[in-house]
């Protein structure tokens, strides 16, 4: 009796695992596998013509933050890497802020339109998003390059004497990334804004709150989950952005994505590339944990 039931439960367990196998295989191969390879590569020695040699080494991790002078063997900080890392974090944060400043009023505008017109507005927001990333980036380039639309207008109106250098600056990256990732901010903010009970807005006005106070004390706290989601959705791809800095930064304004690409390409240092990729991942995770913690704590004090 006991034997029989143990056997049966054992068989059930085995069947369950069998059924789970395809999912597990896919998860292992598609998600864990590549990551594992990256982790392993970061601890190997670079091959002469790319690839890796199977020899354990800490060097690439060390090289993420520091470098040994070629002649004097002196240790110093890897300025280039840190500059790029700092620029990536800074520009990503600025992009989040800028896309919030543009996206929040946009979402508010759409959410306050009559219901049957909102879909049309959302569609207008989404159409550029469905266009190829490269094409959108080149469109921005056309706008801000020295002989581009904006400079032509400024020159034509006599506001400036020579073209304003906007392309290949951090400014151009900021504009480009904000444009590219703006829908990722608008979408979640709009979603929570649409659910907002506009009676509450009226209640705010009724209780002597000015427009700005209603925004700050009533609307913003209630759509905060959407803002948090939008910020994460914008921040994460910004940090790893590749195409935008490549096109609009013109090789001068590298971001982490470009640095990683360089290691796997021209510089043929795969282990360093792997270590940098993992650094990027770590930065994202640390940023998210901080963000979620900060928001969560505020949420708790609310309850």
């Amino acid at each position: 009796m006991t034997d029989l039931s143990t056997i049966r439960s054992r068989r059930e367990t085995r069947d369950r695992w069998l059924l789970l196998t395809p999912a597990l295989v896919i998860l292992t191969l598609a998600a864990m596998g590549p990551l594992l390879i990256v982790v392993i590569y970061s601890f190997l020695t670079p091959g002469d013509y790319g690839g890796v040699e199977w020899q354990f080494s800490w060097t690439s991790w060390f090289n993420v933050v520091a470098e040994r002078d070629f002649f004097t063997e002196e240790l110093k900080l890897a300025d280039a890497h840190l500059t790029v890392l700092w620029r990536s974090v800074k520009l990503s944060l600025l992009t989040v802020i800028l896309s919030f400043l543009v996206g929040f009023p946009t979402a508010y505008f759409i959410a306050t339109r009559p219901a049957h017109k909102r879909d049309m507005w959302m569609l207008l927001i989404m159409i550029p998003f469905w266009t190829n990333l490269l094409i959108r980036t080149f469109a921005i380039m056309q706008l801000i390059r020295n002989h581009g639309t904006i400079n032509m207008i400024l020159l034509g109106l006599g506001i400036v004497d020579e073209p304003v250098q906007m392309l290949y600056t951090e400014f151009s990256l900021l504009v480009g990334m904000t444009y590219v990732y703006l829908p990722l901010m608008i979408l979640p903010v709009y979603a929570s804004m649409e659910r907002l009970d506009f009676n509450l807005v009226e209640a705010g006005y009724d209780l002597y709150a000015t427009r700005f106070q209603v925004l700050r004390r009533v609307i913003f706290p209630l759509v905060k989950p959407g803002v948090v989601a939008g910020s994460i959705l914008v921040f994460v791809p910004c940090l790893g952005a590749y195409v935008t800095p490549r096109v609009l930064g013109g090789g001068k304004q590298l971001m982490l994505g470009n640095l990683i690409d360089l290691q796997f390409g021209q510089l043929r240092n795969w282990p360093l590339g792997a270590a940098l990729s993992l650094t990027l991942l770590a930065v994202v995770m640390v940023a998210l944990v901080f963000y979620v913690r900060a928001i969560g704590r505020e949420g708790e004090s609310d309850v």
Binding site: D197, N199, L200, E202, A203, G204, Y205, D206, L207, Y208, A209, T210, V218, P221, L222, D302
Partner: peptide, 20 residues
């Protein structure tokens, strides 16, 4: 005068209490 400058308060049909 805008609503926030009228010495008039409303008890809304749906109460409209601030949930946060």
């Amino acid at each position: 005068r805008p609503p926030y400058q009228r010495p008039v308060n409303t008890v809304f049909q749906s109460y409209a209490l601030f949930p946060h």
